[in-house]
């Protein structure tokens, strides 16, 4: 049966699909649904998760034949290249990500028997990697670094252009987050300090917290200014700086500075 396809920004595909454990009726029904949906939309490949089945099953059309890959795993990958890909999930917007040209894969066939396969052409390899990604809660956007991702999200919203190159690597953690993380902790404790008078706490302790609040306020301002300059430096380093990225950084900075001002005023009246 043809099933409705999920389109961006539907994030219900953001789950790790579970392994296929049985190759009986449910599996066959799911496989039929995937193939029917592919035929209806004239697709060359589809992962189960793209039509709402949270199972590790994908189908690739190879020489007019619909080949099912259950529980696929990429065991080795070689020869990286920049692959510009379209996916029905992103309504065929092209996004450039890093892929590998040579793959050695294992998967379960329709009977649940493990099979191996070698792929050594770019198109087939990138399709395979993209579909496997979907099964592991990974869309094309997730393969971009944070700056490119921001840019791509804007482009998908019709407010910019897609990044057309992958970076050397895809950082999982930007160092600028350190500034944000420390600031958030300082703000959290500033907030907690405002609740202290509700408890039977000595005046000296409250004075201590008032001093903390003053110190924390100053620290937040310094941290956020440092954050902004570091973020600018990082954005340049990744060569993907966009105006939206600057806007985002300003947003992060202002939100926390304003919070710290409000908390400091609160502290002045409550603890001071």
């Amino acid at each position: 049966m043809i099933q409705p396809i999920k389109y961006y920004p539907d994030n219900s595909i953001n789950v790790n699909a579970g392994p296929i454990r049985s190759f009986k009726e449910n599996y066959n029904n799911m496989l039929t649904d995937i193939i029917d949906t592919m035929k209806e939309h004239n697709l060359d490949a589809l992962s189960a998760i793209q039509i709402g089945y949270t199972y590790q099953l994908m189908v690739i059309k190879e020489n007019e034949e619909y080949c099912a890959y259950a529980n696929p795993r990429i065991i080795t990958q070689n020869k990286p290249f920049d692959s510009t890909e379209e996916s029905i999930y992103f309504k065929n917007h092209a996004i450039t990500v890093k892929r590998y040209e040579e793959l050695s894969i294992v998967y379960d066939d329709k009977n649940g028997d493990m099979k191996t396969k070698k792929i050594d052409n770019k198109e087939e390899a990138s399709t395979f990697q993209r579909k496997v990604d979907y099964l592991f809660n990974t869309t094309l956007l997730d393969r971009l670094n944070p700056n490119q991702r921001e840019q791509a999200i804007k482009a998908l919203a019709g407010k910019g252009i897609m990044p057309d190159k992958t970076d050397d690597y895809c950082p999982t953690f930007s160092k600028k987050e350190y500034f944000v993380s420390v600031t958030d902790k300082l703000l959290f404790f500033m907030f907690i300090s405002l609740l202290l008078p509700l408890f039977n706490i000595s005046k000296e302790t409250l004075d201590g917290w008032y001093t903390y609040d003053k110190f924390a306020f100053l620290s937040v301002i310094i941290l956020m200014i440092s954050f902004f300059f570091y973020a600018q430096y990082e954005a340049k380093k990744y060569k993907q700086c966009t105006s939206c990225q600057i806007g985002n950084n300003i947003g992060v900075m202002l939100k926390r500075i304003i919070s710290s001002i409000i908390l400091t005023i609160g502290s002045y009246f409550i603890l001071g």
Binding site: N14, V15, N16, D133, F136, N137, T138, D142, R143, P146, T172, F173, S174, E177
Partner: peptide, 13 residues
């Protein structure tokens, strides 16, 4: 699953 920089990603990615 993990949360990285505000986004939910799989431990594989």
């Amino acid at each position: 699953h993990m949360k990285v920089g505000g986004y939910v990603v799989s431990s594989k990615l």
